[in-house]
Design a protein around this nucleic acid. Sequence first.
DNA 1: TCTGGGGTCCTAGGACCC
DNA 2: TCTGGGGTCCTAGGACCC
Length: 397
Amino acid sequence: MRTIFHIDMNAYFASVAQQANPFLRNKAIGIGGKPGTRSIIAAASQTAKKRGVKTAMSTREALARCPDMEIIAGDPHLYEHIAERFLGIFQRYTDCVELFSIDEAFLDVTAWADRWGGVRSLALRVKADIAKEIGAHITCSIGVAPNKLLAKLGSDMQKPDGFVWLTKKDLPVLFAFSELTDFLGIAERTRRRLAAHHIHTLLDLHYAQLPILTSIFGSSTGLRLWLLGQGEDPSPVIATPPPSKSFGNSYTLPKDSADIDALRKTFFALVEKATHRMRAELFLASTISVTVRYADFTFHGAQGRLGEAADDPLTLFHAAWTLLLPLLHRPCRLLGVHLGDLRVRGSQASIWNEETQRKRVLAAIDAIHERYGKNTIHAAATTGVELKRHVSGFAPR
DNA sequence: TCTGGGGTCCTAGGACCC
DNA sequence: TCTGGGGTCCTAGGACCC
């Protein structure tokens, strides 16, 4: 039997803001985009939550419910920096820590809990370390269970600053009092599909036959759901983060637009951003995909394979734009680009001067962005003059 | 003046090959 | 005139997570 911790930082982005700025403490704050930018609340303080603000609510609706809520811009670098620090704390207590997201982690403490005086004592130590070293305004909820699925359920059961220890013996009670969607991996669509087959509760799922579930959902998802119905989750805690598989950026326009020139500029900036992040991790992309969300909220996309893996924004932009252009026949709400099928950039020096020169130019652009910010240097292609020539040279597959 | 942005994984269906 | 089946790759889209 394994002993798994799931540690969830409470209202993480909002707590970080309140930890950093004492004036924000005990106030209704929400982390989100500027009002007027069709943004949502990524995190809300406890005070704001009490007033009806929920995570992922549109900023507009949140302000309607809580007019004096202060909207604070997110600070991704700070979140990452603090996440590294609590990762460091967790790693003192076990060698098996999986960072599940920026504010959550799974710990496999099977071999370690006794060494730290047992499960409860270990949980208290972790909480104490966070309070002492990161700040008393950043708290966490800890769920403990024999697998990740139940540990995650446990951390959700008591917020903020919770501690819930679940064992197999608790399953009948859990199944009787939880909703299907309380479990990791079941959201609204799956709930509806299950309901269409007369599976409405966790007990229904518990008694559902595996062949039925696989016939509805396919072998992989069907098996996962069946295991979920048994309270089982064999997935291990994976301590080494897997390499990135894609880099993407998307942007919701302040207003729906069909203005090709304006869309091109916006899109170029997106490709540049994704490319820059990819280059920073020394990858080249072999596939490129684009997405559009229209005013009616439907998504459409296209993808293509590059003749040769690339990492420079111009090549990638020209490829992406060729794919995107046919999709821009009606007003767009969102544009997105994803770079995928990544390969590691080789270190071999090019024998061609032109290639070396190109790489130097790109390195210089990266350095300028790094030092002076993202908007300091742009390709002439954004003016549209050189663009046509390049675009005609690319054939999507 | 409804509904973000970063990801991962899965599935369905078609093309193509043997 | 009819016509299997398996495998792989590719694309598009869906579902889910925080």
